[in-house]
Design a protein around this nucleic acid. Structure first.
Lengths: 200, 200
DNA sequence: CGCTAAATGACTGACAGTCAGTCACTGTAC
DNA sequence: GTACAGTGACTGACTGTCAGTCATTTAGCG
């Protein structure tokens, strides 16, 4: 059965099997033997594509991260959108990734208790990418004269941290929109924006 | 050797042994058998005091958290301090926990690669406690008329998230003070403060 | 056909967690 | 003050699980 699939495809198959297994049992209760059984390969094969069990967790997080960044890049790339508009769109997209059927299940898996490691790995590789998108938005806002910050990089990190923290604040899901609106207002104020966010 | 130590003391001994072992080898490379050997008890005894290996990680994080919160409560409890002053003192204390000999080593251990779990567990139980302290400071600031936010809770979460994010931004330690100053300025602006933070 | 590299799966060492048994101590009875 | 049963903290050898390895097999390619 050797050489029937190219390297990337085989790797992707194992990542899919791992994602499904983590969804069903959680990371800690998923053995590498479960993953390879589902993927239809031998245990040794697994270690030709991943250096460790942790390595496949990172790969799953990467896949989720790629999907999320794709969605965000799409709404942010729209030309002729104002910086504030893009910023609000980015937030919509971040909180609404649940509504995207592709990513909704993945995000749900990640938030399950017992899959903390997945959440951490995602944050780890998502955060720098989000920061760089936010930096671009802030720079645009500075050019437009609606934002005022001395250090784009620091502002991007701060604002992102603040917004992510709303997610962790433990407010019930029903009140999330309100919490998010509050965080958005604070973020815009931190960026030196003085207008009404709802102009759009 | 039965009944020679009260429950709390024995538990504390095991936590100490675990802390030392985690410092030396990292969590993943520390076996429960290493901890009990260092603590001078049998493996079974460990499970009379902790439900799992993860449970002792939480206990170590709690000990570190208690020390940090103590230090912060101390500087924040000073009467006659303005809200802005307390806020700045809190930040000093948070970033300077390294200078406190008690906690410096603990903080260092926690930041080591491979002890991510410890960092996460600390954040988990430290964050709500910090939020509540920051809420008190914001309320004081509202009473003093120097802050202006519609929702104290949301503001506390946002500001704390933003500040913690500076820690993760990957700036070299030499530039940390500058990054922290930038984050502080952003935080105060988010809180609606319009004065000069350096009045003190 | 060799030759090379991918794939295999039985195996191993390590380790988290268990449990039947020990023993130091305490309270009670005489 | 002696005997003795009761208690529960403590023990450590043991077990099942599982991540990771490696000698061997299989498939494609010139």
């Amino acid at each position: 059965m050797a050489r029937t699939l190219d390297r990337e495809a085989r790797r992707a198959e194992i990542v899919s099997a791992a994602t499904a297994a983590f969804a069903e049992r959680g990371i800690a209760h998923t053995a590498v033997s479960d993953i390879v059984k589902a993927a239809g390969v031998a245990q040794g094969t697994f270690y030709l594509y991943f250096t460790s069990k942790d390595d496949v967790v990172v790969a799953v997080a990467e896949r989720i991260g790629d999907i999320m960044i794709d969605g965000i890049e799409r709404v942010v790339a729209v030309p002729d959108r104002s910086a504030v508009n893009k910023f609000l769109a980015l937030l919509d997209q971040l909180s609404d990734s649940t509504s995207d059927p592709d990513s909704s299940e993945l995000v749900e898996i990640m938030h399950r208790e017992g899959n903390r490691a997945l959440h951490d790995r995602l944050a780890e590789q998502l955060t720098p990418r989000l920061v760089s998108i936010i930096e671009r938005i802030i720079d645009q806002g500075l050019a437009e004269g609606v934002f005022a910050v001395p250090d784009t990089g620091a502002a991007a990190w701060f604002v992102l941290g603040g917004l992510q923290s709303a997610e962790l604040s433990g407010v019930p899901i029903t009140e999330m929109p309100a919490a998010l609106a509050a965080a958005t207002a604070l973020a815009l104020r931190a960026l030196g924006y003085t207008g009404d966010p709802h102009e759009r």
